[in-house]
Amino acid sequence: MKLIFEIWRQESPDHKGQFKTYEVNNLDTNMSFLEALDVLNEQLLREKKEEPVAFDYDCREGICGMCSLVINGEPHGPLQGVTTCQLHLRSFKDSERITVEPWRAKSFPIVRDLVTDRSAFDRIISSGGYISVNTGSAGDANAIPIEKAKADQAFDVAACIGCGACVATCKNSSAMLFVAAKVTHLSALKQGEVEKEERVLKMMTSHDMEGFGSCSQTKSCEAVCPKNISTAAITALNREYLRAAVKKPQALS
């Protein structure tokens, strides 16, 4: 199988980037998209003319949220509900031209080529995306009974791996789906209930301060999310936020 890649190359945050075209032959349809880029990089190393293409990955099995490529305009490519590392070349045609771009958002500055700095997400989490418990050995798994429906509801949003595809596709570069997943996951459970109001206000303040835009409900985040997180979580976030703003207006600043 042969593919033609049109890839965004950018040496450093301060350099101007540009697209470069590469032809890669002898690919196997069972390869993952990242493996195809590995083949391209081996080719570039052999030719010794250009630096290999920098791209993020870690687990390569769809759980870490590091891989982050916009493939032909779609974050994580054309397949619904998978990450870039779980996308295979059988989703493409032989000799297809594939444009590969990095996540684009002011709050995700480009480090190099296709690698972006997503530490803004870590700062949002540290602003309130936690529960306060005493450290020590883990408590007994069933010590706190949680109804099945609640557990399922929390688990659906807990599936968020924080990859940032929602930001990448949003016309406002909003991270509301990410924040919504974290907020609704924690507040659905007994352990997270105590800090419910403070959490939602703090995390949204951090979201806005990090420079992410607001939600226009276009629902494109839900369409590209590799974990199929529904925008119903954003509606729930809005509800929780408005309720918290009324109950604890002093916590707003």
């Binding site: 049109e6 980037g17 697209f19 916009v70 032909n72 305009g73 779609e74 974050p75 444009t99 771009e101 684009r104 958002a105 002011k106 709050s107 995700f108 596709t169 016309k171 406002n172 570069s173 909003s174 420079g211 992410f212 835009g213 607001s214 226009s216 276009t218 629902k219 494109s220 839900e222 369409a223 590209v224």
Partner: peptide, 18 residues
């Protein structure tokens, strides 16, 4: 604010269900 949040536009524009 939303326009300020965006950086370089994508080369391939895809509506992604919007």
């Amino acid at each position: 604010k939303n326009r300020q949040s965006r950086s370089t536009p994508y080369k391939v524009k895809h509506p992604n269900a919007s």
